[in-house]
C-alpha cells in the first residue's frame, strides 16, 4: 500500500497553515486525516498525484475548509479553560486555602473601612496590585515567546492560557468602577454590611486575576501535557 513520505507529511502541515490552522494540535489531527484519505484514494487509483489526492480530500471539508473545525475547536478549548479556572477557584474555597482567603477578605474589609476617607490610599492599593500584575504578565509573555521560538509550534491551550490571563487585567480594574459608582462622598457612609460585601467581591475578583495571570500560566506545561497526549511525542 502506498504511503506518504516525510516530505509529503511536512507539505500537509504547510497546507493546513496556509488554510489558517495555526495550532499544531489541530494541524496534527487534520494532517493524519488527510494523509489517511490520500492513502485510501491511492489504493483505488494509483495514478493520482499527491496534489490531486490532497485537493480531493480537502474538498470533503466543505466550502469553508478547515474554518469550521478551527472555530469549534476554539470554543471547546475555551470551555475547557473555564473549567480549569473554576477548578482552581473551588480549591481556594476549601480548607486550608479558604482560611487565607477569609483572612485577606477581613484585612481588605479593615483597610476599606479605615481608609474610606482616604482616596489616595484606596486608589494607591489598586494601582500597586495592577503594577505587580503587569510585571507578572510581562514575565509570562517573555516565557511564551521563548517557547514559541524554540520549536515553532503553537498549542491552542497555551495561547488561551497566556491570552486569557490578560483578561485578568480587566478584572483588576473593576474595583475602580465601584469607586466611580459610589463616589468618595458616599464611600465613607457605607454600612459594615456593604463594606463586607465589597471586600468579598474585590477579593474574589483579585483571586480570579491571580489564578488566570499567575497560577495557571505557572502550571501551563503540566496542563499542556494533560490535554495533549501528543505534546510529549512531538
Amino acid at each position: 500500500m502506498a504511503q506518504l513520505n516525510q516530505d509529503q507529511i511536512e507539505s500537509l502541515y504547510r497546507f493546513t497553515r496556509q488554510h489558517f490552522v495555526v495550532h499544531y494540535d489541530l494541524q496534527t489531527e487534520l494532517v493524519d486525516h488527510m494523509a489517511s484519505g490520500i492513502e485510501r484514494l491511492w489504493e483505488k487509483n494509483d495514478q493520482l498525484t499527491f496534489e490531486q489526492a490532497r485537493d480531493r480530500e480537502f474538498k470533503k471539508f466543505g466550502v469553508f475548509g478547515f474554518m469550521d473545525v478551527v472555530e469549534k475547536r476554539q470554543k471547546a478549548m475555551n470551555k475547557r479553560y473555564s473549567r480549569l479556572v473554576w477548578k482552581h477557584f473551588i480549591e481556594y474555597m476549601k480548607l486550608p486555602k479558604v482560611a487565607g482567603f477569609i483572612l485577606i477578605t477581613f484585612l481588605t474589609f479593615l483597610t476599606l473601612k479605615l481608609t474610606s476617607y482616604s482616596e489616595a490610599f484606596f486608589l494607591g492599593t489598586i494601582f500597586t496590585v495592577l503594577a505587580v500584575y503587569i510585571f507578572c504578565l510581562y514575565k509570562a509573555r517573555r516565557k511564551v515567546k521563548k517557547v514559541k521560538t524554540d520549536d515553532g509550534k503553537q498549542w491552542m491551550l497555551q495561547d488561551i492560557i497566556y491570552n486569557q490571563g490578560n483578561m485578568g487585567g480587566a478584572i483588576a480594574l473593576l474595583p475602580l468602577h465601584f469607586y466611580n459608582i459610589l463616589g468618595l462622598n458616599n464611600f465613607h457612609q457605607l454600612s459594615d454590611f456593604w463594606f463586607a460585601i465589597l471586600s468579598l467581591v474585590i477579593c474574589g475578583l483579585f483571586l480570579f486575576m491571580y489564578i488566570m495571570s499567575v497560577e495557571i500560566p505557572k502550571r501551563a506545561e503540566e496542563y499542556l501535557k494533560d490535554t495533549y497526549p501528543e505534546y510529549k511525542l512531538s
Binding site: 504511503q3 506518504l4 513520505n5 516525510q6 507529511i9 496534527t28 489531527e29 487534520l30 494532517v31 493524519d32 486525516h33 494523509a35 470533503k60 471539508f61 466543505g62 469553508f64 469550521d68 473545525v69 469549534k72 475547536r73 470554543k75 471547546a76 478549548m77 470551555k79 475547557r80 495533549y228 497526549p229 501528543e230 511525542l233 512531538s234
Partner: peptide
Amino acid sequence: KEGALYPVLHKLEAQGWLTVEAERVDGRL
C-alpha cells in the same frame, strides 16, 4: 462529513466524555 465530525469529537472531549491518546503511526502522529 469531516467538517461535522471533528467539532463533535472536540466538544465531547471538552465535556470529559471522550479521552484522547496519541501514537506515532506511519511517520505521523
